[in-house]
Simulated assay, not measured.
Amino acid sequence: MSRHLIDKVAVGWQTLGTDLLDGAPPALLIALTGGEQWASRTLDHLVQPDGSPPRRMTVDQESVITSDFQWGYILRPNGIEVRNVFHEEPGPVVAWSADPRTVCAAPWPAPAARHTRGTPPLATAAPAKATATRTNTRH
């Protein structure tokens, strides 16, 4: 998963496709996609305002505060950790073996108010060690 989501992309993802599910049981593929297939697409043809090639954005404590991130996903050897930037405590780790149709309950209460760009959230998450793009971390 980390090779597909992080290592094989220069900048970020425009669309994540069913190729993420390669090797999954056919019944699961049908349940998740209705039998349809589509390819993941990367963000191509991007340039910085100065005309230079785009750089991959690293999510850290500063970028979380100055952006409008609400959620982050950290790929761990044992699963995907779901982080809520409004709370300091680590999020749950969803095991790689978990059925993707399973509803995962968030352990955090809803924030009283949503922070706005440039305003620190109620609490910020510790800097993530994983590299992610804005596209695949924003929900």
Rank of each mutant, 00 (worst) to 15 (best):
Q61G: 06
P120F: 04
L21G: 09
Q37F: 13
A105D: 08
L21S: 10
V59N: 01
A98E: 10
P25L: 07
W96K: 01
G91V: 03
W71H: 14
S52F: 10
I30K: 15
E89P: 02
V64N: 05
P92N: 05
V59Y: 02
W38Q: 07
A39R: 15
P111Q: 03
R138M: 14
H115C: 06
D19F: 06
A110I: 01
A98F: 00
I6H: 04
A27I: 06
T66F: 12
P90C: 04
V9K: 01
L5I: 05
D22N: 15
E62K: 10
P111M: 01
G35V: 12
T58C: 02
A27L: 13
T18A: 12
R138C: 11
E36G: 14
T102N: 06
T18K: 11
D60E: 12
H4S: 01
Q61D: 14
H45G: 15
A95M: 03
G91T: 03
V103A: 09
L122C: 02
T124Q: 06
V9H: 02
A105M: 04
L46P: 07
V103L: 11
T33F: 11
V85D: 04
R41A: 13
L75P: 04
G51I: 09
L28Q: 11
M1N: 00
P92T: 05
L20V: 13
A110K: 04
A130Q: 07
P54D: 04
V64Y: 08
E36C: 13
H87F: 14
Q37D: 11
V103C: 00
S2F: 00
V9R: 01
S2Q: 09
E88S: 14
G91W: 04
R83S: 07
L46M: 15
E88G: 15
Q48A: 14
Q61T: 14
G118S: 03
A132P: 02
R55A: 13
S52I: 06
A125Q: 11
V94I: 15
A95Q: 10
R114E: 09
A130G: 14
V85N: 10
L16N: 03
T133F: 06
